[in-house]
Each structure stands twice: as C-alpha cells, then as structure tokens.
Amino acid sequence: MAFTAKDVQALREMTGVGMMDCKKALTEADGNMDKAVEILREKGLAASQKKAGRIAAEGMAYAAVVDGVGVVVEVNAETDFVGKNEKFVDFVKGVAAVVAKEKPADLDDLMAKPYGNGRTVQEEQQEMVLVIGENIKVRRFAFFTEGVSVPYNHAGGKIGVLVNLEVSAGLEDKVTEVGKDMAMQIAALNPRFLDKSQVDQATLDEEKKILLVQMENDPKMASKPEKVREGIVTGKLGKFYKENCLLQQEFVKDSSVSVEQYMANAAKALGGTITLKNAVRFEKGEGIEKKQENFAEEIAKQLGK
C-alpha cells in the first residue's frame, strides 16, 4: 500500500519521531499507519511521545562564536539537573555548531538540518529524549555572520547574551572586553531596547499616559496647568530612556558614564570606532509557564493514598 508525504507528516505528529524514521517505518509497514506506529514503538523511538507534552522550562541558554559566526541558542529540558548533564550540554553546543554552519532560516529549517552524525537535529533531539528520559526541546536561536560577536554565558546557562559590534579595521581583536562588559550589562539589567531610537511611538504614548495619570493623582501636580504638566512629562521621558535603553543606561562598572559614553571612550583609547549593531539575550525558560508541582500530593498518589 503506497503512502504520501502527508502520511509521513501525520505519523511524525502522532509519535514525535523524526521524518526519516517515520518514512522507514511506513515503508516497512507497507503504508499501514497502525503498523508503522507499532514498529516505531518496538524500536523504542516512539517512547518520547508521552514526554513530548511535558513542560520543559529548564535547560540551557548558550552563546558562542563558532568559526567566526556568533550564535546564541536556548534548549529546554524538564529539570535543572538535566541542564547540567554532560550529554545535554554537548547537545546544546552541537546545536549551536549546526546553526553556525548551516545558518537556518527558522526553527523548522534548523530541525531538518544535519546534526553531523548521520541524523538531523530533530532526530538527535529525539535521541536525547530517549537517552536522558526527559522532554528535550530546541526552542530558539539567533546568529550574526558579520562584524565582531562577543558571547557571554551567565550562571551556567541561565542566561546567554550575544553582542554584535561593528568596529574600524584593526580593532577586531581588541574589543572583546568592551563586548563582554556590554553583554554583562544586558544580562544583569535586561534592557527593553538597545537605543532610544528604537522606542516606538506606541510605547512613548503609553508611558506619557501613565505619567500624566500619576500627576493627576498628585495634589501638587494636579493643580498645575496642562501645558506645564506635559513639559514635566517630556523631561521625565529622559529617565525612561536611562532605565530601559542599553546605550542610555548608566554603565554598571562606572555610573559616571552611560554605556554609550563608555563605548565612545573605549573606541577613542583604541584609536578607532565601535558601534553596537545588535544584541540578543536569551534567558532559559523565559515566558514558559512552569507547572507548579505539589510534591506531597504526588507522593500520596504514588502510594495510593
């Protein structure tokens, strides 16, 4: 019985197993879907099906420069313990290497790329699920192919930051410290924007609205003319930039200068120019709703109480 690409995709969705293994199973089963599922289970490949639905909010964020390409990835696991597992860490670094080499367009593209051992990244992820016994999931990645990229990893994979700089000729090997200082600032303060020029009008309007409401609730401010209050609000937006925009923030290592001034001073000392082109900050589990376990209830269930 013949089968189509849609059948392969359907089997993949049912079992969570890689495309090639699904295709092999359908070929062996002569297109019979139920038999193909059985074959995958017998091979132990579909064992990860149940695990695929479990929440993976731990794991590792990892930044690196691989063959001149700056890469940052996040790979999730279910427990913090697995995030320190040597096999898991090797897998995360392997994923980063694939991103650097293949430069995938998106996550689906990355998962279909060769991992380097005869399996795709998707298939290697499935292998990790089987070996480690937890739901493992490549969540996101970013990379820079131009300029100078400086990676920084904080707290053993809790946060990964990648800073991308454009520098004048001859400074390529001299700006690592500058990049690391900026990456550490990003890791610590997590600015919403890199520069005040990136703040959109909708954000500014919302901030102005909040400040005006605060003034209306302050008896001293409420009595002032509207034009005066709006002038005060405009002035207070400078504080918003200093708190939320990296280049306008006080430099953590020297609060007498902003990050922008620190960069300019460093560039002058090195005899060239340094420009921040981009930066990415991944924090493991960020935005993933973690399941709150009641361990007393869980143990009681296991004991049949």
Rank of each mutant, 00 (worst) to 15 (best):
S149Y: 05
L247F: 10
E216L: 12
V280R: 01
A279G: 09
V17D: 05
K137P: 04
K284T: 14
F295E: 08
T4E: 00
E146V: 12
A2S: 15
Q201T: 15
A10G: 07
L40M: 05
S256C: 06
V73P: 00
F141R: 00
E134Q: 03
E28T: 07
Y241R: 08
S256Y: 12
D200K: 11
K284A: 12
K87D: 15
M128T: 03
G160D: 01
A269V: 10
E146D: 15
A142K: 13
V98Q: 00
V8L: 01
K137C: 08
N117H: 09
A10Y: 00
L11N: 04
I274E: 00
K284E: 15
V37C: 00
M60R: 08
E286F: 13
G94R: 00
S255K: 14
I186E: 02
K301G: 02
D181P: 07
I55R: 06
D108T: 07
E298F: 03
S197I: 14
M19F: 14
V65S: 04
V92P: 00
K242I: 12
V167A: 03
M182T: 02
K253C: 04
E283S: 13
L40Y: 00
N190R: 10
F141A: 01
A269M: 06
M263E: 04
A57V: 05
V89D: 02
A112S: 13
G70H: 03
N85T: 07
N294I: 04
E123C: 13
L303M: 13
V65D: 02
M19E: 12
V71C: 04
E286V: 13
E123N: 14
V72W: 07
N190M: 10
A100L: 00
A279I: 08
D34Y: 13
M1T: 14
E28Y: 06
T273G: 11
T79L: 03
D173S: 13
L110P: 01
E42N: 09
S149P: 08
S197A: 14
K224A: 08
E127H: 14
S258Y: 07
Y262W: 13
A10F: 01
N244K: 11
Q9N: 04
Y115D: 07
A300I: 05
A61L: 06
Q261S: 11
G287I: 08
G235W: 06
G18A: 14
K101D: 12
N190P: 07
N153C: 07
V66S: 01
Y262S: 03
A36S: 03
G147P: 06
I55Y: 09
Q249N: 06
F3H: 03
A222S: 12
A279K: 05
L204P: 06
L165V: 10
V131K: 15
G116E: 02
V233P: 04
L26G: 00
I136T: 01
E28G: 08
Q126E: 15
N244I: 09
G157H: 01
E177L: 12
A202M: 13
K103N: 08
A296G: 05
R192Y: 15
L26V: 02
A279L: 13
K6Q: 00
A97L: 02
E127G: 14
E166N: 14
R140M: 03
T203F: 13
L212R: 09
G272C: 05
M221W: 09
L247P: 01
